[in-house]
Design a protein around this nucleic acid. Structure first.
Length: 514
RNA sequence: GUCCCCAUCGUCUAGCGGUUAGGACACCGCCCUUUCAAGGCGGAGAUCACGGGUUCGAAUCCCGUUGGGGAUGCCA
């Protein structure tokens, strides 16, 4: 009989969702979906000092943003709740009482200071085992009863069975792993303040939530034998374990804040698409076939398995993530693009008929940014125009946050922010005023359709007529209209800008030269 | 110190006894081109950490060494 697949992602809300946590969540999710099982979200908030509800909400938001869904969790409930560890203390107490009755735990009256002293002494003496010396393990029962009734501060420790033999388990990623019992410490499962510790509660929860597979970070590999001992004391079957190797920073050290952005939220803000992050993270330690790098979450769900998970730690390569993101932008299509771009438009207050002139750093020079509602309304009524921008930026933008700068010239009315270097190089040259004049002549025809093909048709012969290189002519027009020698394709840009503004800008640029 | 884990191009990886060691990112050329990109084509880049075995044959199996990571908390 194989029991139904039930997996969980159990972050502790002491910060927002970390890249490493996100990958763990993705693998849990993919495994559950692959096997038609359940994916449970459990919040490990037993440390009231560092846990906040805001962090919990942020983690939930990030997971959702990534496109993950779960079957049970704090905000959606389920048959195995509550899903906040802080609300499960009754379960932990009950389990502890059970362990007290069957003699697998004992009270320890050693103070933290004593323990520290012993530990330091053991380390100084180069002892092979620097764990607890078990001095409280065999205290006479009457003494124990008296000290407890006297109210003496004490913890509860797991009584490791000394004749147990090595603790062995088959890790789905690392294979058979074994720990000598002599190394196992009689670790604390209940603190002197009455709160249970991680290695205890995690077992209780996984048992009572009927978790079949524990998929988590490699940093828990050495905790696993401890937990197996707890399962055994409880008389409960241990789940299967799958440990995932760590994600490292570029320096080969464990990924942390000092490596820069490490939260999912930070990548979201930078303009990464959830599909791209998910794809990249999925590939960081797992491979579909060794060849395919871009694949959908459906493909992941259908193919994920532990047999193709790598055991070595992986360096997080933001360059490759960025490339992946650009691939997703190229493939997403105009409609999804506009939806994804919207928040960035709202941030600067761009609208089709706006006049927000920004300088090179993105600071407002003149004009009035639109409100969020106005941007919203504008995108709804001019959806086609916004979607027409997509092909211009799709091949250029690697991240969404770059799109505003790329298209700012479309939102500044008749004015243009001129990049000084571009003006010097492409505009302030002898004869350019004539180029612009001729250009205006060609565009003066009111009957001409203002579309890129017609515009190109109208201007294509200009270089030959003026006996100039195409580059000289078109770069001049580009700077006149866009303010910069680097811009999206010229004729498409003119089309989007419109007849009136294009002509106004070229005239303004010519006047600048005269 | 002790225990556990890991080791293929700069990076992510494929490989699971016989391959010219494959792919992707990044990098370098060339082509395309009115800018920037994108795209196409090509290139360089890995004595498979090192040393011993086993085998007709080892990146693949075994042992050791070195290096890295993790654990060793009244954190999770």
């Amino acid at each position: 009989m194989t029991r139904p697949v039930r997996v969980r992602f159990a972050p502790s809300p002491t910060g927002n969702l970390h890249i490493g946590g996100a990958r763990t969540a993705i693998y849990n999710w993919a495994f559950a979906r692959r096997h038609g099982g359940s994916f449970v979200l459990r919040i490990e908030d037993t440390d009231p000092e560092r846990s906040t509800t805001e962090n919990t909400a942020q983690i939930v938001r990030s997971l959702r943003w990534l496109g993950l869904d779960w079957d049970e969790g704090p905000e959606i409930g389920g048959n195995y709740g509550p899903y906040l560890q802080s609300q499960r203390f009754a379960t932990y107490n009950e389990a502890l009482e059970r362990l007290k009755r069957n003699g697998s735990v004992y009270p320890c009256f050693c103070t933290p200071d004593e323990l520290n002293a012993k530990r330091e002494a053991a380390q100084a003496a180069n002892l092979s085992n620097t764990g607890y010396d078990r001095s409280c393990r065999d205290l006479p029962a009457d003494e124990v009863a008296k000290r407890i009734s006297d109210g003496e501060s004490h913890t509860w420790r797991l009584k490791v069975p000394l004749d147990h033999g090595p603790v062995t388990f088959d890790d789905l990623v690392f294979g058979t792993t074994s720990f000598p019992i002599e190394q196992m410490d009689d670790f604390i499962i209940l603190r002197s303040d009455g709160s249970p510790t991680y290695n205890f509660v995690v077992c209780i929860d996984d048992v009572s939530m009927d978790i079949s597979h524990v998929i988590r970070g490699d940093d828990h590999l050495s905790n696993t034998p401890k937990q197996i001992l707890v399962y055994e004391a409880l008389g409960a079957p241990a789940p299967h374990f799958a440990h995932l190797s760590m994600i490292l920073g570029p320096d080969g050290k464990r990924l942390s804040k000092r490596h820069g952005a490490t939260s999912v939220e930070a990548y979201q803000q930078q303009g990464f698409l959830p599909e791209a992050l998910l794809n990249y993270l999925a590939l960081l330690g797992w491979s579909l076939d060794g060849e395919t790098t871009v694949f959908s979450s459906d493909t992941l769900k259908e193919n994920f398995g532990f047999d193709r998970i790598s055991r070595n730690p992986a360096v997080f390569d933001e360059t490759k993530l960025t490339w992946m993101n650009s691939a997703y932008i190229k493939a997403m299509g105009a409609s999804f693009f506009v939806d994804a771009w919207l928040p960035y438009l709202q941030e600067v207050g761009f609208t089709r008929n706006g006049d927000t002139l920004l300088d090179a750093s993105g600071a407002l020079l003149s004009g009035t940014p639109a409100t969020v509602e106005e941007v919203d309304a504008d995108v709804i009524t001019n959806r086609c125009w916004y979607e027409a921008i997509y092909p211009l930026v799709a091949e250029r933008a690697k991240k969404l946050d770059e799109v505003n700068a790329m298209t700012a010239f479309l939102f500044s009315g008749d004015k243009v922010f001129y990049d000084e270097k571009s003006v010097e190089k492409c505009l302030r040259k002898p004869g350019i005023d004539k180029v612009l004049t001729r250009c205006l002549d060609e565009l003066a025809n009111e009957d001409m359709l203002w579309q890129h093909a017609e515009l190109e048709e109208a201007l294509r012969s200009l270089p030959e007529q003026l006996d100039l290189k195409p580059k000289v002519v078109f770069q001049a027009v580009r700077v006149a209209v866009c303010g910069n020698m680097v811009s999206p394709p010229l004729f498409e840009s003119l089309e989007l800008l419109g007849r009136k503004r294009t002509i106004a800008r070229i005239k303004a640029a010519r006047n600048l030269l005269l």
